[in-house]
């Protein structure tokens, strides 16, 4: 006697296997560019890396050696400054979007954030150039960081918005019944409950602007030396890569690869850290 369970369904099994194989192939194809970039940058960059790359300033054309200490510092400075501006405002905006989600203003802000997220970064750079750089009459670290902060804003705001909405309403209700005001609930209950995810989202936003070059070209510009204040232009790895790669000198090309490797490493580390944060501390 054959029962339902004994039927083998060979066609179905074949189809399932084919589908699995197709998915694996797609994953492999998607991984190729990533691995190729990492591998190629590592291969070209490692050869040019040296201690002096991290400790010395760029040398004039024709003189071999030198480093990009100021560009590494500049990138870190720009990103920290941009984060200091973009993250608090982005989180506050995101909390507003989530807690007042049905208001007309929230809908307008959410739509604006989505549009801003889609604006090409070079346009943000041009706008900051026209409004800040032209008015201050010189390029500055602050203008560069401002441009990066504008790029971070919609990312941070929308991540916060999404994560704050996953906080159950029963918690908001509990807090309301305890006599809490809306804004205190937003900060002490919603933000605190969604904090791990928001933290990870911020780190991803930081990683994203770490590599932005276009908006820095005419805001932070570049600097052969250390910048003395935020009002000075500053060097950055991104812009140095661009400048050196465009130059006709082999020595500079090699340095551009080294800078690329350092930048990629920074982004990868930030991404890994974000995953770590999202997963939470390991149980002891």
């Amino acid at each position: 006697m054959t029962t339902e369970l004994d039927v083998a369904y060979p066609a179905r099994k074949l189809a399932a296997r084919l589908a699995t194989a197709a998915c694996c192939a797609a994953v492999a194809i998607a991984l190729v560019p990533l691995l190729a970039v990492l591998f190629y940058v590592a291969k070209r960059g490692l050869g040019a890396l040296s201690v002096s790359f991290f400790t010395e300033l760029p040398r004039p054309v024709g003189e071999r050696g030198g480093g990009m200490a100021n560009a590494i510092g500049g990138t870190i400075e720009l990103v920290l400054l941009a984060s200091a501006m973009g993250i608090p405002i982005g989180i506050a905006a995101g909390l507003f979007l989530a807690e007042y989600r049905t208001t007309r203003l929230a809908r307008v802000v959410r739509f604006s954030a989505d549009v801003l997220a889609g604006v090409p970064s070079i346009i943000v750079g041009v706008v900051v150039y026209a409004t800040v750089v032209v008015r201050m009459q010189h390029f500055s670290t602050l203008a560069g960081a401002g441009a990066l902060a504008i790029l971070m804003l919609p990312l941070v705001a929308r991540t916060t918005d999404e994560l704050a909405r996953t906080v159950p309403d029963s918690l908001r209700e509990a807090a309301l019944a305890l006599g809490a005001s809306r804004w205190r609930i937003a900060i002490h209950v919603v933000l605190r409950t969604a904090a791990p995810g928001i933290r990870a989202g911020c780190m991803l936003a930081v990683a994203r602007v770490c590599g932005e070059t276009a908006p820095l070209l005419f805001t932070a510009f570049n600097n052969r030396f250390w910048n003395e204040s935020f009002a000075d232009p500053t060097s950055s790895l991104q812009v140095q890569i661009f400048t050196y790669a465009m130059s006709p000198y082999d020595d500079w090309h090699a340095q551009a690869w080294a800078a690329a490797l350092v930048l990629v490493a920074m982004v990868v580390v930030l991404n890994l850290a974000a995953r770590r944060v999202l997963r939470g501390p390991k149980p002891a």
Partner: peptide
């Protein structure tokens, strides 16, 4: 807000704050 501080409430489903 002042009313709610004088008149407290316990809900159907326990709702402690998970992050606290």
């Amino acid at each position: 807000v002042r009313v709610r501080r004088r008149v407290g409430m316990v809900f159907q489903k326990p709702n402690p704050f998970p992050a606290m």
